[in-house]
Amino acid sequence: ATNIVSKVKWYNSTKNFGFIEQDNGGKDVFVHKSAVDAAGLHSLEEGQDVIFDLEEKQGKAYAVNLRIK
């Protein structure tokens, strides 16, 4: 899926990962520091509106092509 609009559930800049809620009630989506860095960001804030693409690797959903709404 591409261009999903949602909100950051939480992000831990010390552990370099977090999760984004899915508005459709699906499972929370993992977001890694590499996606945050690629977006030119230093961190994410809880409740922040984001747009991302969903990529599945080894049966897990990852946020990629992250951008701020």
Rank of each mutant, 00 (worst) to 15 (best):
A35G: 03
K27Q: 10
V8G: 02
E56W: 15
F19D: 00
D23F: 15
Y62M: 09
K60N: 08
S34E: 06
D28Y: 05
A63D: 03
A1L: 13
Q58R: 12
I4L: 12
G40N: 09
H42S: 13
S6T: 05
D23L: 15
V64T: 10
V5I: 12
L44A: 00
D23P: 15
V50Q: 01
K69G: 12
I4M: 10
V29E: 00
N12S: 14
S13M: 11
D23E: 13
V64H: 05
E21L: 15
E46L: 10
L54K: 08
L54F: 07
K69Q: 12
Y11R: 00
V31F: 11
D49N: 11
S13F: 11
V8P: 00
Q48T: 09
F30A: 02
D23G: 15
Q58L: 12
N65K: 06
A1K: 15
L54H: 03
K33N: 04
Q48N: 06
S13I: 12
E21C: 15
G18E: 00
D23M: 15
D23Y: 15
L41K: 05
D37Q: 14
S43D: 11
K27H: 10
E56F: 15
N65D: 02
G59T: 04
L66R: 00
N24I: 10
Q58N: 15
A63I: 04
A35S: 09
F52N: 00
I20Y: 01
G18S: 01
K7P: 03
F19N: 01
T2E: 09
L66A: 00
L41C: 08
L41S: 05
F17V: 02
K57T: 10
L44S: 00
N12Q: 07
G47F: 05
W10I: 02
L66W: 00
V5S: 12
D28C: 07
V31Q: 00
D53V: 04
V29F: 10
E55K: 11
A63K: 02
N24L: 10
G26S: 10
A61E: 11
F30W: 04
V64S: 07
I51T: 10
L41M: 09
H32F: 05
N3H: 09
N12Y: 06
V29R: 03
Y11Q: 00
N16A: 12
N16R: 15
K15F: 11
A61Q: 14
N16F: 09
N24C: 11
V64P: 02
V50S: 01
Q48E: 09
I20Q: 01
N3Q: 08
E55N: 08
Q58H: 14
E55L: 13
K7S: 05
G26M: 11
A35N: 05
H42R: 13
K33E: 03
D37E: 14
G59E: 06
G59C: 07
G47T: 03
G25V: 07
G59H: 06
D23W: 15
V29G: 00
N12H: 09
K7A: 04
V36W: 03
Q48H: 06
F19G: 01
Q48P: 02
V64A: 07
G59R: 05
V8S: 01
A61C: 13
V64N: 05
S43Q: 11
V50Y: 03
F17R: 01
S34G: 08
N3V: 06
E21S: 14
S13D: 09
N12D: 11
V36D: 00
S13R: 13
K27R: 12
I4D: 03
D49T: 15
D28Q: 07
N65S: 04
S34P: 02
G25P: 08
V31W: 02
I4Q: 08
V50I: 14
V8N: 00
A39T: 06
S43T: 14
D28A: 06
K9R: 10
G26Q: 12
S34C: 11
E21W: 15
K15D: 04
D37G: 08
N24K: 11
S34R: 10
N24M: 10
S6L: 05
A63T: 02
G59V: 01
N3K: 07
V64L: 04
H32C: 07
I51F: 07
I4H: 07
L54Q: 04
G26H: 10
H42K: 13
A39R: 03
G59L: 05
G40E: 06
I68P: 08
S6W: 09
D23T: 15
I51N: 03
V50W: 01
T14Q: 13
E21V: 15
S13N: 11
L66T: 00
Y62T: 07
E55D: 07
V8W: 02
K33T: 04
Q58G: 14
S13E: 10
E45P: 07
H32N: 05
L66E: 00
L54M: 10
G47K: 06
F30Y: 07
A35R: 04
N12W: 09
Q22C: 14
S43I: 11
Y62I: 07
F30G: 00
V31Y: 02
T2F: 13
E45K: 14
V5N: 11
A1H: 13
N16Y: 09
N16Q: 13
E46I: 13
V5M: 12
I4V: 11
I20G: 01
N65M: 04
A38M: 09
A39L: 08
I20R: 00
S13G: 10
S6F: 06
F19T: 02
G59D: 07
A1N: 13
F52V: 04
V31C: 03
D23A: 15
L54G: 01
I20P: 01
R67P: 01
K9D: 00
N24F: 11
R67W: 04
N24G: 12
V5K: 12
H42G: 11
G18Y: 03
D28W: 06
D53Q: 05
T14F: 13
F30I: 03
A1E: 10
D49H: 14
E56G: 07
K69F: 14
G25A: 09
E46A: 15
S43H: 12
V29A: 05
V64F: 06
A61N: 10
A39K: 03
G26E: 10
S6Q: 05
E45L: 13
V36A: 03
G18H: 01
L44W: 02
W10L: 03
V31E: 00
F52G: 01
L41Y: 10
G47N: 07
K7T: 08
N16T: 07
G40R: 08
D49R: 13
E46K: 15
V29I: 13
F19R: 02
L41E: 06
E55W: 13
K7R: 13
Q58S: 12
I4F: 07
E45F: 15
D53G: 03
T14V: 13
A35E: 10
Y62L: 05
H32V: 03
E46P: 15
I51Q: 08
F30T: 01
K7W: 08
E21H: 14
I68Q: 07
D23K: 14
I68G: 06
Y62N: 06
V8M: 03
V31P: 01
K57F: 13
W10G: 01
K57E: 08
S6A: 15
F19W: 10
K27E: 08
F19V: 04
Y62C: 08
K57C: 13
T2W: 12
A63W: 03
V8H: 01
A35V: 09
Y11W: 10
D49K: 12
S43P: 08
H42D: 12
G47E: 04
R67I: 07
A63H: 01
F30E: 01
G40S: 06
F52D: 00
L41H: 07
I51W: 08
L44C: 02
A35M: 08
